[in-house]
């Protein structure tokens, strides 16, 4: 649905996006993670034909960015970084404008459908300016969906929302995805990305990694077990290394740090082997790095 090849964007002196190559499949929820200033919004703007790439190419929904911009705009929905509503117009009228601009066949019906779906129907006559931040965000999401786009770009949909509203928006994104829409989700929220996304790209001007959350976890976040021994030694480590499913064993002071995919399953055997080899085990624990740590490390390494 979205293919980019070496997609790049340079602003006067800053390189905002550098040779991004991705391939987002139909029906996929694709998480686009990166720190502030990583170039997420810039990427979304390029993919929605709002700004032109300075190098590279992209195809969105079969249309070429820079050549078939109108078709792209007609077939994608975008939740912009700021809702950008008409504050002095009613919620309903805000949507009506966009239903007409997208040439929706049944504007009134579509407007009602999404106002109801997002729980704003009762407040439809109120000016958008009187809405809370969360309601504005929901209204902006509704606006992006009126023309039933097959691809939806969401630029930080839950930023600044309280946990409950964020939850609501997240559930809604899940629903949209189950309808078979392709969703390109920019976020800072690792937990959100983990829960919603089929694949995650960590991005900071350049693409750092891209994989399914599970494999990313295994790859970068991999689980580690730490065992404190009274007599830690390379010899004991070597005994552990040969056990199936054990990936790496390091000796650090009086500890063995063991990388293993499935500690619950593999630990008993590791412990048995060590005890048989004469190890005196004092403590066993899991060395857990949070998703955040790993993400931060990835992003820092990018500098």
């Amino acid at each position: 649905m979205i293919q980019t090849e070496n997609l790049s964007k340079q602003f006067q002196t800053t390189q905002a996006v550098d040779r991004l190559t991705i391939d987002v499949k139909q029906g996929e929820v694709f998480g686009f993670l990166g720190p502030n200033g990583a170039g997420k919004t810039t990427t979304v703007r390029m993919l929605c034909s709002l700004i032109g790439p300075s190098a590279g190419s992209a195809v969105v929904n079969g249309f070429i960015v820079g050549k078939q911009d109108r078709q792209i705009r007609q077939s994608v929905g975008i939740l912009t970084e700021t809702p950008g509503l008409y504050d002095n117009l009613s919620a309903e009228y805000n949507l009506k404008i966009f239903a007409n601009l997208y040439e929706v066949t049944d504007p009134a019906g579509q407007v009602e459908k999404y106002l109801r779906m997002l729980g704003l129907w009762e407040r439809r006559q109120d000016e958008a300016g009187t809405f809370s931040k969360g309601m504005k965000q929901k209204l902006a999401i509704a606006r992006a969906l009126l023309h039933e786009p097959s691809i939806l770009f969401l630029d930080e949909p839950t930023a600044g929302l309280d946990p409950e509203s964020a939850r609501l928006v997240r559930d809604f994104i899940g629903e949209l995805s189950s309808e078979g829409r392709t969703i390109f989700l920019c976020t800072h929220n690792l937990d959100e990305a983990d829960r919603l996304c089929d694949r995650i790209a960590v991005f900071k001007t350049r693409l750092l990694v891209m994989d399914t959350p599970d494999r990313l976890r295994a790859q970068v976040f991999g689980r580690r077990v730490v065992m404190h021994l009274a007599n830690a030694s390379e010899l004991l480590a070597a005994q552990v290394r040969v056990i199936p499913n054990v990936k790496e064993v390091q000796v650090i002071d009086n500890k063995l740090v063991i990388n293993v995919d499935d500690p619950e399953h593999n630990n008993p055997e590791i412990i048995r082997t060590l005890v048989n080899a004469g190890a005196e085990i004092q403590f066993v624990g899991e060395l857990r790095r949070s998703l955040e740590d790993v993400y931060l490390q990835l992003v820092r390494n990018a500098d």
């Binding site: 109108r70 912009t80 700021t82 809702p83 950008g84 509503l85 601009l101 040439e103 902006a140 992006a144």
Partner: peptide, 13 residues
């Protein structure tokens, strides 16, 4: 009011 971006994202010429 930042409403220009969603407006320009529509297929309007």
């Amino acid at each position: 009011t930042r409403s220009l971006e969603p407006l320009l994202a529509t297929p309007i010429t």
